[in-house]
Computed example of a mutant assay.
Amino acid sequence: MSRAVAVCHGPFGRVSIYALDRPLVLHAHREAHLIFYLEGGCGLVNVNGRAFRADPFMGAAVNPWEPHSFMPESCGACGLFLVVYLKPEWLAAQTMTPPGSLAFPSSELVVTRELAAWRDKAVEMLLSAHRELNLAPVLMALAQASSEPIGPGLASSLIHLPAECTIDRRVQRACRLLEEHTSYEHVLAYVAREAGLSRAHFFKLFKEQVGVTPTVFANTVRVDAALDRIVLSHEPVTSISARLGFSCQSVFTRFFTAHMGMSPSDYRRALRTVGLTPLQVAHG
């Protein structure tokens, strides 16, 4: 069964070692996302409709908000993967490169010697018994080895667009409403009405301008809200489920597992944090 071997959250984002034996549904992340095969069964990654194999020679690089999915190459086969999620604003703060560049120019990532060395260093640190982990420089080196340059343009995610962007105001408002209503079951119909559009027109316009459907966007927001509470609080999973508007804990667990590959309880058991302030923890 899929499980979290190690999970660490910090100002950089999050990094995990997952044992995966089940598919993950089509989803997206706000973060720049790297996937590296470690051992066991290989995986098939689909990014923006293009599928390729995650194996000892090839990893996956996913830009913020790029829709992607995962499935084991063989039914029931379990593979071990290093999975990295790096916040665009953190990446931008680490570099002085010109704005406007993407995190990764290609989804297919050739595992060079340099890349493998930084990957293995990250794995070693995640599996160590040391309580304090200085992961930030290792993850930055991993990102830079995956793609050069990484520019401050990453800091402009699609939900915080610069003023000069020509995105439709109705879509900008829809993004804000989806962010604000993580616990509302019928939020998509509500947002379409607020935008003054039919559901079909709203979905088409949103997908054209944001790059993902409103459903994928809303699910991303909901997963992020769940992760915040799992990581930054001691709130029981049943309470988190209720706060996010799920009808029962089992429905929430199925939703979380479909996006993360494991249950909320399993994720929390493997979790440790670095560099998070008491204020951030108290906020949870």
Rank of each mutant, 00 (worst) to 15 (best):
I159Q: 08
P105Q: 09
T238H: 12
Y190W: 04
L271P: 03
R254M: 10
E180Y: 03
A145T: 13
T112P: 00
G196L: 04
Q209C: 00
H29Y: 09
Y18R: 15
Y18L: 15
L142W: 01
M71F: 01
N48W: 00
I230G: 14
R3P: 04
S101D: 11
V83Q: 07
Q209Y: 01
L115Y: 05
P98H: 10
L26E: 15
S250T: 04
A174M: 06
L244P: 11
A242W: 02
V84P: 01
F217G: 00
V281G: 06
S74P: 12
R119S: 07
M1L: 06
L80M: 08
T215Y: 09
A258C: 03
L178Y: 02
H29W: 02
W118N: 14
L102S: 08
E124Q: 12
F206G: 00
R268W: 10
D266Q: 13
Y267T: 10
Q209N: 01
L188W: 01
Q249I: 03
A145N: 07
R269H: 09
G76V: 10
L276G: 08
P149E: 12
G211R: 07
T182I: 09
P149I: 11
V237W: 09
G59N: 06
N134A: 14
G151S: 12
N134I: 00
L127T: 10
V7G: 02
E108M: 13
S265V: 12
L161N: 12
A54S: 07
V191T: 02
R268A: 12
H27W: 01
R199V: 13
S247V: 09
M96Y: 10
P152I: 08
F52H: 09
P162S: 11
S157I: 14
P214F: 01
V274C: 14
N46P: 03
Q280W: 04
H29D: 11
P214W: 00
E194A: 13
P72A: 09
A145P: 03
L271Y: 07
A141V: 04
G153R: 06
